[in-house]
Design a protein around this nucleic acid. Structure first.
Lengths: 107, 107
DNA sequence: TGTATATTTGGCAAAATAGCCAAATGATGA
DNA sequence: TCATCATTTGGCTATTTTGCCAAATATACA
């Protein structure tokens, strides 16, 4: 593996990591429906404001979301909706696993 | 957020986490080209046999690979090729970020 | 200018993850 | 059966990630 292949791999990984957390995945799903400000996400998540902000900054760093400051609030949008197409695949994995589980139990 | 929504979110996250590591992503890409035994991946990665095995077990647990023991070797296959469609989206994110970076530097 | 509101940043402790080594398991063939 | 090879598991430390608190920033408005 060359150094540049390694670099590319790390870069891709960073994007994946930005989604690979329950809070951030939830945020991505929320943002898929339209922009939201930080304050709108704090309460449903039941987390500290600073924690929510940090999660959003991880996603921003990864290039998945964009922020837009308007007045006192900051609105986030999903930059790459194709990310959510992927969730169909992830759900297929889960259904598959559930089926296998059921099959094992049936024996 | 209900308890079952939380459960679903965690399950999806587990699938994403299984890909969100350079070593595991590399493995997934390799397996996309066809089955491989553990021993074939150890050397290119330059990691301990046990480390490679553990990474594969994370992916197996997540339901994205299957293992098949034949003789002394264990062969792994990618169960869900749609996972790699997603990488197109991830690459789009990276290109986007690169473009923005270039734009900022150009100013 | 001062105050209140929304958000980010720095710092810290707790939890999760990664990778190595050594030991255990499992299959093959002498 | 014994020795060997491929792999997995257990256990340990080092690193990374998470989430809270407190403090800093930024904006609007009195």
């Amino acid at each position: 593996m060359t150094e540049s292949e390694k670099k590319l791999l790390e870069a891709k990984t960073q994007v994946l990591k930005a989604l690979a957390h329950p809070v951030r995945l939830w945020m991505a799903e929320q943002l898929a429906e339209g922009e939201k400000c930080v304050c709108e996400m704090v309460e449903p998540l039941g987390l500290d404001f600073s924690t929510v902000s940090k999660h959003l900054s991880v996603m921003k760093q990864a290039g998945i979301v964009a922020d837009d400051k308007r007045g006192k609030q900051v609105f986030y949008t999903l930059k790459v909706p194709c990310i959510l197409n992927f969730m169909g695949c992830v759900e297929a994995v889960l259904e598959n696993s559930a089926k296998e589980q059921a099959c094992l139990l049936g024996k």
